[in-house]
Write a protein that binds this DNA or RNA. Structure first.
Lengths: 250, 250
DNA sequence: TTACCAACCTAACGTAGGTTATGAATTATA
DNA sequence: TATAATTCATAACCTACGTTAGGTTGGTAA
């Protein structure tokens, strides 16, 4: 099971959509398989991200270690799956990855992917934007899985705060948030009643002041500490390597 | 707030990475803004997917209506965010999208995105693979948010079963699954003890027979019915439109 | 002004699932 | 082979959160 055997590529191939160069590139990957033992780590969270892999044999998974000692698995990878493309457009890994049992993987550098995009940095930019969204989804998943309603809501509000600050619509730690508690409950997977309860708790702790659609976070840093916020997934700019690679491409 | 004002594009622009054609394309988007009212629907689940949008003003969200009458919000979109790129590489929308308050959006067709990829259907294929992964992540999010442990584990096992069947390693409804209950618990956000309890329930119901790493689903269809499985996100091939668009590109 | 409705708050009570603990079955290591 | 370490099953107990329900507030419309 290799990249060219991936269902997507097989589809492209049988439809005659792959150019000879594309095919050559795909088959070239076969030449550098890595034999992995069970539990062997592919990469750790926050290491430099510069490649992705096709799982040829064995199972792998990506995960995040959490402050409370547990971990959240984001995804299991089976033969034929691509692991690590999530971090394309980021400087560092947002999650760790490891083998479950022994197997074989084929690495594929981001550099090679860039070259495929040819000249259009616009295309690369849009793809990077898409992977950023996926990163936000992963964060939400982590909070849904392992944290209490209190931590979840705090995390949610702090994320909204950061995203709004980036587009310069936060003034004096206050912002406009046109969400009902019911909509928030549908996002966080809890009952509307419990959202209300949790808002009350956050208010009593002095962390959140809310009046209908007007929200104020008197001490955003305290909130961030409460949830141990990992803001690398919202970072402002594409990594410098992104531009170097673009300039280096033909 | 337009696409070119998105943080990613601004980064590309200030680094001089955007070609004049890229810039012209981006600015051309400004010409077709759509003014949306509060609660207006952008698209419904399972409608044909052929475009994405940049949110210029207002808030939007994507969501899935669930069988039990509730809904799960997947993501809130703020000004500058791109909505609908998740479905690139799929025939139909995997989730609905709607405005929260009134606002302005700028549509951008998948066709235009294809043209940016130039000749490399390999690049397009890799991107499509990445969006498929995001789709799987979304499904997991939905189950984490709104379903009981019983339904979650059933869904998880059925997804593994489908993915393994696609790569032809399921024989007689049985497969090898090198996961401990602890690892499963870390993926599903529940305690190892409860994973064991839930496996026992599924066994008593005759839905799952498991012996260490060997799993058998005597009646996969019954499992699928239990979780109302939406298998469009694991579908085998890229949509026909994908190939038509590729042939149409210069 | 009155009536109405959506959004929100709080309380009382029930339950799914967490926690802790113990023992059995399996696999790994000496 | 004995010994240790995982993995898993089941029980007893507890808590975070769901559910149901009743009341307050604020916005809107006649």
């Amino acid at each position: 099971m290799s990249l060219i055997d991936t269902e997507v590529m097989r589809g492209l191939s049988t439809q005659g959509a792959l150019s000879p160069e594309d095919k050559a590139l795909l088959l070239g990957l076969e030449l550098s398989p890595r034999y992995m033992s069970a539990s062997e780590v592919l990469w750790q969270e926050s290491e430099e991200a510069d490649l992705f892999c096709v799982v040829k044999e064995g199972w792998a998974y990506s995960y995040r270690n959490l402050k409370n000692g547990s971990k959240q698995v984001l995804k299991f990878y089976l033969p034929g799956d691509i692991i690590g493309i999530r971090d394309f457009g980021f400087t560092r890994r947002l999650a760790s990855a490891a083998m479950i049992n022994k197997g074989v993987i084929c690495p594929f550098s981001y550099q090679q992917l860039f070259e495929l995009f040819g000249r259009s940095s616009l295309a690369a930019g849009i793809v990077a934007t898409a992977t950023r969204q996926q990163a936000q989804l992963s964060e939400r998943l982590i909070y849904l899985g392992k944290y209490s309603a209190h931590e979840q809501l705090a995390h949610f509000l702090y994320e909204i705060y950061l995203r709004l600050k980036r587009i310069k619509v936060v003034k004096d730690n206050s912002f406009f948030m046109p969400l009902t508690q019911e909509l928030i409950s549908d996002a966080l997977g809890m009952s509307p009643v419990h959202v209300s309860r949790t808002f009350s708790m956050l208010r009593e702790e002095g962390l959140v002041i809310r009046n209908r659609q007007h929200v104020k976070l008197p001490d955003p840093e305290a909130l961030a500490r409460l949830v141990e916020f990992n803001d690398s997934y919202i970072d402002e700019f594409l990594p410098p390597s992104f531009f170097e690679l673009l300039k280096a491409s033909p």
